[in-house]
Amino acid sequence: MVSSAAQTHKKVLEYNNTLGIVAMEGRGFEYPTDTVIARDGRLYVTNRSRDTGERAVRVTVLDVESEFYGTFGYFGRGDGQLVSPMCAAEDNTGHIFVTDDVTHKVTAFDYDGNFVSKWGVHGSEKGELNGPSGIAFDADNNVYITDTHNHRIQKFTSTGEFIMAFGSNGSGQGQFELPWGTTVSPDGEVYVADWGNDRIQKFTAGGDFIAAYGASGLGDEKLQRPSSVAVDERGYMYVADWGNERVKVLDADGGLLQNLRGEATLSKWAALYLEVNREEGEARAKSDLEPSTDLLDADDPHTQSAHVEKLFWAPMSVKLDNAGRLFVTEGNRHRIQIYERAS
């Protein structure tokens, strides 16, 4: 059996529950990429859909009790439309900003999904974007954007006026290889998931390099293509270790505290589906959904996750709420696993 228990040096988190179900439209997710835990108490989940995504691209709005509030931001290139929503964040005026790595735009919506504004010019000059992904606001309502294919972080005002940029392509300190998620810590420091370099980098608000964390490789002790990072008030780093199909908790010095492989259970929406579709529900109840690990290559966590449903599969984003709960958005399993602080 593939171990999915939290492998722990110090137990920081314990599994709480799962949200979501796959759905091409309406209530549910399809290839979700990120979750915003907004101050209105709701979750705003961006979805990329499959292939050309003309149907399922949207932002799904729900809360932690699985109450569904609707969707917005459908496929297209017009105002309030999205082609490939990648990451999202809330500013201090209650607007939800979504990056789009195909249109190279950042689009803002209000809580009701009304279009507010959009900005972003495709290119490689300062202030221009090429495949924007990660997005995070600081306390002054300025925003850091991961400019993926330009291998840098750029800082803008919330209306898109360029402030500064840092980083270049490479593997040295302060350099990046196709960076992905970014966050601003409670102390105002900027953390970046430096995807292609298998590490997390930490910077001052002004973009000066402070530290890098993570050794490159497969498995529990290393990082492989991290997609996202969240940081709490203790400086603990919560890393979506995308290539290892894991989530890792690191202390403020980068020491491994806990390694999570995924423990998903049926969400309310999933349970309801199986209750209504009884034939599937009954067949599922008789199944062994955790097949023997000797069928699966331990060095291929992606394939393991394709076979064992409860494991993380493409953890795209990690976000913390005010209670210290961690929300893990899984692209390939179209759901969010929630972990709470261990008692």
Partner: peptide
Amino acid sequence: EYMMVRSQRDSDWPYGRI
């Protein structure tokens, strides 16, 4: 049985294909 029921129904649910 579960895989065939899902296959016959072309079911992605609840969490994508296994």
